[in-house]
Structures are given as structure tokens and as C-alpha cells.
Design a protein around this nucleic acid. Structure first.
Lengths: 166, 166
DNA sequence: GGCATGTAGTTTAGGCTTGAAGCATCTTCC
DNA sequence: GGAAGATGCTTCAAGCCTAAACTACATGCC
């Protein structure tokens, strides 16, 4: 796969149709960055934790029977090496625990400890309220439309990704 | 199981409207992450560079007179300590150069070198094409609407941020 | 069984990122 | 002029993140 490199785009003053997609992408990125860094700030200030840790607990919270590190890696969309490090820290803090997999000798099962579950419940409630607060000025109808259009974008991107690794 | 947790999503109870904002946020984050990690992958594969470096060059490319590190920090929305490190690496690679500020003894001016400008032009053309490619399935009308709604979201978030630090 | 191939996790080197502490310089206000 | 505070930048410690190399186990095929 080779995205048709537009010959005319080489110079700064070239105004091809592409510019619009670029502006859309930059705005998407700005929105995400603004929300994400505010959430990081608050997680740190209120709970002394970080977004990756929060996301990790969230993944486990949704799977009461536990998850393998590989599954956590896929759900969080991060590398498996990253999961190894995060899991070690969370285990040290007593928020998660490891068990051997019942049938696969290579795998493990990670689960929230009772304390991890309690901690996450507190954090999660606050987190949900923060998001609602930050997006309060987007009317319900606009939110629904935004959600739909983002779904479209997601689909568009995913189609291009799977295309090139068959 | 914690009775305060919703059985389906594992998320804590909250006033009814909140779930929707959360789903919107998660989708926004997924979209951004998908595009961003694909762009990182391609920048690495094709140009042996990284997204922060690319963004840094982009900021300087838009300012022919050069920028102070502080200005770069604001435009990239990253900490000033971060800019220090990136600038050092880019200077080592000969892509940017530093000059003393004409009037402020504390400040500097960072500018692209000719080589930096050439490098960025190459990368930028490819980057723009990638974004257009990834978003190709979003129709022009949908793109415009998405852009507008994201503007609304951005505005909503920003209003909440400035609110609390007067 | 036994080899080839694939998959699950870990390790490692290197880069990115932040918040906080620190230094130098600038600005303001007396 | 000079003190007090603000601003620009760097340094530092700690954590996040990835790709690539590696180990250990599993599975398929003969």
C-alpha cells in the first residue's frame, strides 16, 4: 500500500483539498489533548494516580473474572511490554493480583483486589462527572451527532489499517 | 461485586445523563489514538523520526522568523522542560538552530535550518496525504459537520478550564 | 514422539512527558 | 536605584511508551 503522494503538496503554499482533512485532524487532536491533560491533572491532584493506571483498573473492572496481560494490552491499545510495567506497579500498590492461568502455562490472570475495586469505584465516579462537566456545553443532539460522525471516522481509519496487514 | 457498580459496564452509578458523555469521550479518544499511532508508525518507518519532532518542526515552519522555546511550548501544548529536550535533539541533528533574542537576555530564538526546512517539507507532504487517506471515507459534508461539532466541544472544555484559574 | 512454528510475557535501550526545583533576567513599583 | 515579584529556560526524578530481542510454553504436522 502506498498512499498516492500528492506531487503538488510539497510546497507550503499549495492549497489542495487535503488541507481540510488536516484541519479536521488537528482539531480532533486538540480536543482530545485538552480533555486528556485536564483529566490527568485531576487524577493526579485528587487521587495521586495517573491515566494509564486508571485505564488499567477500568479494563479489569469490566472483567470480573480477570484478564490476561495480553487482553489488557489489546483493550488499552498499548504494547505488551508496557502492560508488564504497569501491572508490576499496580501489584506493588496492592490494587491488582496475579494468578496462574488454569490451562495455559504461559499466561496469567490479572484481577482487581477488593481494595483495587474500591479505589477504582471512587475514581471512576469522579472521572465520569468530570467528563460530563467538560462537555456540558455540547447539547444532547450535538453529542449524538458527534458520536455518530466519530464512529464514521473510526471506521474509515480502521479500514485503512487492516488493509495493509492481511 | 460492588453493588454501586453497574453490572453491564462496571462503571459507577451516576446521574443518568453522564454515561453518554463518557461514551462520546471514549470514542473521541479511540479515534485520536488510532490515527495518532498510525502516524507515529509511518513517521518512524519512512522518515526515522517521531511525532513530537515532527510537530516541533511544524511549529517552526509556520514561523519563518523563528520562535522562542516558550512559544513552541504553548503551540505544542507541552511543558517547557519537554521543549528543552526536544530542541537539544533537533539541534544535534542539525534541523534547527538557536540564536540569542535581540532584546530579552533570558530568551532565545529557534529556527529551522535549511536542511530542517527541506526535511520538514518532505515529511509534511507525506503526513498530509496520510491524514487525507485515513479520513477518506468521511464525506466532505460530514467532515465539515464534524469539524464544527468538535469546535463546540473544544469551546466547552476550554470554558471549564479557564473558569478555575482566574 | 519430535520438530517447526506460533503465542504469552518479560527485558532492555531509548525516547517522550510531566511537575517541581532552581537560576538568570526582566519588570514593576516604591 | 533597588527590592520584590514575574517570566524564560534548564535540570532532575519519576513514570509512560515503544520496538526489538529473548525465554518459555503451546500447537500442529509428520
Amino acid at each position: 500500500m502506498n498512499p498516492a503522494l500528492d506531487a503538488e503538496t510539497g510546497l507550503a503554499d499549495a492549497p489542495p483539498g487535503h488541507k481540510e482533512e488536516l484541519r479536521l485532524w488537528l482539531r480532533l487532536l486538540t480536543c482530545t489533548t485538552l480533555i486528556e491533560s485536564e483529566v490527568r491533572r485531576r487524577l493526579r491532584a485528587r487521587f495521586g494516580t495517573t491515566l494509564p493506571r486508571f485505564d488499567f483498573l477500568a479494563a479489569l473492572d469490566r472483567a470480573p473474572e480477570g484478564l490476561t496481560p495480553g487482553e489488557v494490552s489489546r483493550r488499552m491499545m498499548v504494547s505488551s511490554g508496557n502492560v508488564t510495567g504497569l501491572a508490576a506497579r499496580l501489584e506493588d500498590e496492592g490494587l491488582i493480583e496475579r494468578r496462574a492461568h488454569h490451562s495455559d502455562g504461559r499466561a496469567q490472570i490479572l484481577r482487581l483486589t477488593p481494595r483495587g475495586r474500591r479505589e477504582f469505584a471512587r475514581q471512576s465516579a469522579a472521572h465520569e462527572a468530570w467528563i460530563a462537566e467538560l462537555l456540558a456545553d455540547v447539547a444532547p443532539r450535538e453529542r449524538a451527532e458527534l458520536f455518530r460522525l466519530l464512529g464514521r471516522a473510526k471506521q474509515s481509519v480502521r479500514a485503512r489499517l487492516t488493509e495493509e496487514k492481511p
